[in-house]
């Protein structure tokens, strides 16, 4: 492991300033992802700015919904009474991820920035455009069972591994960030990126910006929600495919719906047009299946992950049936 210096920030503004002082600096909070990546030499920062002491752990009701501090621990968020009452989908997704020990350390902001589990990204002896821009992609033509079927590019077929992000996508979350040029709000669907030819960037966050909170808007959608995760082991495993679904049905007809997919793309996969199309249609398997097919239109399988297309379709239908 490369030697690095360490500084602790006590205020968000200090954190941003401390980070800006050196080019190869990184924020560290729970460390559940970054420490692993440093051990594998995937990340080798010169300096770590510890933000774990910042006062960003609160979960508060606001007039528009709920504000969750960026440093709220995954386990605390999952068990929070407000979250469980208003946004049970988020609880469900968080509890589907990692292990209790990891959830006790992992934070909201860190989970948003969780990096891919692509084997080639983790193995520094292999080419990876995400880790080393321009070095190539080992996964295309390699062992790509866990990789993307949607929205990938010739330079990267990695997926976003987070369960939480999928739920946030279905919940229309807004990410609050602060940086040297002030604060801004980023809708969740704009927060994560597709790889294009710059797969080294997972999100639109600038290098010296700090996530401060995640806002969950209360909507009139009502209805029920469900997070369905399909994986190789019932605990402590990443999703092969996951579905975050919210559905409101009135008189057997879809009134409103959100569907986000995990494990299939570089970002949580949501197509608002498909959802709009479902409104007014009967809440039946036919509607769900045609929505599933529309969500997966243009899916591009690789050698080992073609199963994901059918699996995702089945999972979407199953999740919607569960909440209808």
């Amino acid at each position: 492991m490369k030697l690095f210096s360490y500084a602790q920030a006590t205020k968000p503004a200090d954190a941003v300033q401390l980070l800006g002082a050196q080019t190869q600096s990184k924020f560290i909070a729970g460390g559940t992802n970054l420490v692993d990546l440093m051990k594998y030499d995937v990340e080798s920062p010169d300096r770590l700015v510890d933000i774990s002491q910042l006062a960003l752990t609160q979960i508060d009701a606001t007039d528009k919904g709920l504000r969750i501090g960026a440093l709220a621990r995954n386990s605390d968020v999952a068990a929070n009474a407000l979250v469980m009452k208003q946004f049970p989908l988020l609880s469900e997704a968080l509890l589907a991820g990692a292990s209790p020990q990891l959830r006790n350390m992992a934070t909201m902001g860190g989970n948003l920035l969780q990096r891919t589990r692509c084997h080639y990204f983790y193995d520094v002896s292999q080419p990876c455009n995400k880790r080393a821009a321009g070095s190539g992609c080992g996964a295309i033509g390699g062992y790509n069972r866990i990789h993307a079927i949607l929205g990938s590019s010739p330079s990267c077929i990695a997926t976003n591994p987070s369960d939480m992000n999928v739920a946030l996508a279905a919940l229309d979350a807004v990410v609050q960030v602060t940086g040297p040029n002030g604060s801004r709000s980023i809708p969740i669907l704009d927060f994560h990126r597709l790889p294009g030819n710059t797969p080294q960037r997972d999100t639109v966050l600038e290098a010296n910006e700090l996530i401060t909170a995640v806002d969950l808007p209360t909507t009139a959608i009502g209805g029920k929600s469900h997070y369905l995760k399909v994986r190789d082991r019932a605990s402590y495993a990443f999703a092969l495919v996951s579905v975050a679904a919210r559905l409101a049905v009135e008189n057997g007809v879809v009134r409103d719906v959100r569907i986000a997919l995990g494990g299939v793309a570089h970002k949580p996969w949501r197509l608002p047009d498909v959802e709009k199309n479902m409104v007014g249609k009967p809440a039946t398997e036919t509607t769900f299946r045609s929505a599933a097919k529309a969500l997966l239109a243009g899916a591009q399988p690789h050698e080992h992950n073609a199963f994901k297309i059918q699996l995702a379709e089945n999972a979407i239908v199953r999740a919607l049936q569960t909440v209808s």
Partner: peptide, 10 residues
Amino acid sequence: MDYLVPTAVE
């Protein structure tokens, strides 16, 4: 992480 030892959950 990748060698799947079953846990109490399984």
